[in-house]
Design a protein around this nucleic acid. Structure first.
Length: 711
RNA sequence: GGGCUCAUGGCUCAGUUGGUUAGAGCGUUGCAUUCACAUUGCAAAGGUCCCAGGUUCGAAUCCUGGUGAGCCCACCA
């Protein structure tokens, strides 16, 4: 062994693999395909420990299947992540004293693409140092033309099938992000507020939001509530800050008689429940909150104030006019934007929607064709599909796929949406004339599509759909896909619906939900809490292979993990030591090989038989556990075998018959490296190269099979 | 208000379809060391597998109830 030969660095090995073309899918007909789809991380911020685990899992499976002789496609990509991308970029801009408005569309877009490029490069660095063996030649970004084409097809098809509609509905609006968001993009925070009791004619109602009083159009009670029976259907004059107004008392089942006084003000313009009540009772809709979260002219002298500001400002007047009877402390959950934590305002806005019921029904019928891990996700998704509601797909952002709808300026200045209005569905500016008025003055819908509208097509768009490509034929449905649990509805449920709807097939055969890595208290890691662990630092301290191994120990499907930098260090250190063990074994077996070492053996010595039997057991269990995606078990078995059974037991025994045991030592050692390669790609490659071997790399060595080795 | 998941030695976690003295790593204690490896080896201590019932020849594992923790969903005015 040439001791002076410098070992390759991890970066050099990575380049060697990449240059050798080992990462590329090889659609030659002789090999069976195995496809894995990388969940595209958001181009925003850095990859965290969860990403590192997710991608290490993908990589282990890809390497395993490759060694088994499959044509493996591990397709990588990145998501443009509309809302969170804009919010991050705009935050950055505001630090420079800039803003979206100040820059204007063109300049902002330029900055956006630059920002995207920076994040992209940092992702690539992370992927490289983690050793991810993805086919980079097929990498996809969700804003590229390929995805635009697929998204357009999706939109157009929905339109033709009558599943798409646009209209003014009550939606959740984030004043800070300046866009509609979905329920799924909101979270609730507990807040201590006041419950205000207000006089409404003869009744007293309780509300946390007195500022919406300006937009009330009725008072409602429960029809079974005896206290108020006599008032129902009657109209009363009530005192408001803009003078007296007439208002009707209506009865609706949705009112909880136990809340407050049992009587409620109804504000159809700014409350989801009230909107429904308003629809049923044909109430007018008033707007007192605008899209910036400020009160409208309807609020008189309070117009222009922010919601919470106005609430405080109007209290003295309410009290003075005798409208405010009393206040109570009240703790409740307030909906905030998941991205920027701003209080969400329900308002009426013109948005696009997709009718989801038929898609959900199809998904329900086919869900059992997807192997969901852990399998209780079957019920979780089923329950969601059963109660699906329409998908609000428009966002008032710049970063995203523009809605491919063009309005005729001349005959449809209101941008109305209907088959007999001047509008065209088209990706590019239409060249034809308006069918209604013969003009050709087109203007595109200003909004962009929800990120998930394109991400939902990820399994299809990445393979070139709607074109009938060879890749789509060969790699779809995907053999394996994995994700974090928090996007099970936003992403997974939708991928299933969309694939079934457009392709008639499930998108993936195996769907793996990994757990969430949390801090010791069980909280999620987050930038704001500052409790994050940077995978970079772990890799720098302990090496990639050790870090990957530590992550695999947390990879049991559906299991959350609690950890800390200290615990990660502990685990990483352990596997770093394991790596050292491997190197020392190599030294013992190969560098200190006795001169009279046997060159062949029938492995009939009882110690040889024993270790080979154990090794066969290991091969079977690692193979089985990889095939059932239980990487944590495979890693445990490998560790136990190599350290305790092989090094501590067999190698010790072998010392008394060192020369004779050589073939068995070599055989067991080499097999171990191969079994370990999917998990610890770098060290196994480095050591394997120092062994007598056939082939260019352990990456393309054949996966071991249990059995008596050939003599 | 519904639903899901978890509860195993000081800490972080394994434990396949119920089957002999319940495992690992870290930590702790003792011993060893010119031996491939102190980034080591050997050994030891440490668990009524949350509680109470039930099914079974047999339960950490299955069922019921309870307690505690976490998560998800829902139009908490």
């Amino acid at each position: 062994m040439d001791k002076h030969k410098q070992d390759k660095t991890e970066k050099e090995w990575y380049e060697f693999w990449e240059k050798s073309g080992f990462f590329k899918a090889d659609p030659s007909l002789s090999k069976k395909p195995y496809s894995l789809l990388m969940p595209p991380p958001n181009v925003n911020g850095e990859l965290h420990l969860g990403h590192a685990m997710q991608q290490s899992i993908l990589d282990a499976l890809a390497r395993f299947k490759r060694m088994q002789g499959y044509d493996v496609l591990l397709l990588p990509g990145v998501d443009h992540a509309g809302i969170i991308f804009e919010s991050t970029l705009n935050k950055q801009l505001s630090k420079e004293g800039l803003s979206k408005q100040k820059l204007g569309y063109e300049a902002w877009m330029k900055r956006a693409w630059q920002f995207k490029e920076d994040v992209y490069n940092s992702f690539h660095k992370t992927w490289t140092f983690l050793g991810i063996s993805a086919d980079w030649s097929r990498e996809v970004f969700t804003l590229e033309p390929k995805v635009a084409k697929a998204t357009f097809e999706e939109f157009k098809t929905f339109w033709e099938q009558g599943l798409l509609y646009k209209g003014a509905y009550i939606i959740q609006w984030c004043p800070k992000c300046g866009t509609a968001i979905e329920d799924l993009e909101m979270e609730y925070v507990e807040r201590k507020d006041q419950l205000y009791y207000l006089q409404y004619g003869p009744l007293v109602i309780a509300t946390t939001r007195p500022e919406t009083k300006f937009a009330d159009t009725a008072v409602a009670v429960n029809p079974k509530d005896k206290r108020y029976k006599e008032y129902v259907g009657k109209e009363f004059e009530i005192q408001t800050l803009n003078g007296p107004r007439k208002m009707k008392v209506i009865a609706d089942d949705a009112i909880d008689p136990k809340f407050g006084t049992g009587a409620e003000k109804v504000t159809p313009g700014h409350d989801l429940l009230d909107y429904e009540i308003g629809k049923k009772h044909d109430l007018p809709i008033l707007h007192v909150i605008n899209k910036e979260g400020r009160l409208t002219e309807l609020a008189g002298k309070y117009a222009g104030m922010k919601v919470e500001e106005a609430r405080g400002a109007m209290l003295p007047e309410l009290k003075e006019k005798g409208i405010l009877i009393k206040t109570e402390d009240y703790t409740h959950s307030v909906p905030v934007c998941e991205r920027c934590k701003t209080t969400v305002q329900p308002i009426i806005s013109e948005e696009w929607f997709v009718k989801m019921k038929p898609l959900a029904e199809k998904a329900l019928k086919n869900l059992d064709k997807v192997n969901l891990l852990p399998k209780n996700y079957h019920k979780i998704l089923t329950d969601w599909y059963k109660e699906i509601h329409d998908w609000s797909i428009s966002r008032s952002l710049w970063w995203g796929h523009r809605i491919p709808v063009w309005y005729c300026q001349k005959c449809n200045p209101q941008h109305e949406v209907s088959k007999d209005k001047g509008m065209v569905i088209s990706l590019e500016k239409p060249t034809q004339k308006c069918l209604i008025c013969q003009a050709s003055d087109w203007i595109q819908d200003e909004q962009v599509l929800d990120t998930w509208f394109s991400s939902g097509l990820w399994p299809l768009a990445t393979l070139g759909w709607p074109d009938k490509t060879r890749e789509l034929d060969r790699y779809f449905p995907w053999d394996f896909e994995l994700t974090a649990p928090e996007i099970k509805y936003l992403w997974i449920a939708r991928q299933i619906m969309l694939s079934l709807w457009f392709k008639g097939q499930i998108p993936f055969k195996n769907m793996f939900f990994h757990g969430t890595i949390r801090d010791p208290k069980g909280q999620k890691f987050s930038k704001s809490l500052g409790n994050g662990i940077n995978p970079y630092e772990l890799v720098e301290t302990w090496g990639v292979d050790a870090t990957r191994m530590a992550l695999y120990t947390y990879s049991a499907p559906g299991r959350d993990a609690r950890t800390s930098r200290r615990i990660m260090d502990e685990r990483c250190k352990n596997f770093r030591n394991f790596g050292t063990k491997l190197k020392n074994l190599h030294r013992f077996i190969f560098e200190l090989k006795p001169k009279d070492a046997a060159t062949s053996s029938d492995f009939s010595h009882e110690e040889d038989t024993e270790i080979i039997q154990w090794l066969n057991g290991l091969t079977d269990s690692v193979t089985k556990n990889l095939e059932s995606y239980q990487l944590h078990l495979a890693v445990e078995d490998l560790y136990d075998f190599i350290w305790h059974k092989f090094a501590d037991s067999y190698v010790e025994w072998s010392k008394k018959r060192r020369a004779e045991a050589q073939p068995c030592l070599e055989y067991v050692y080499k097999t171990c490296l191969e079994l370990l390669h999917p998990f610890m790609p770098f060290i196994t490659e480095e050591l394997w190269h120092k062994l007598p071997h056939e082939g260019k790399s352990i990456m393309v060595a054949a996966w071991p099979e249990a059995g008596i080795p050939a003599k």
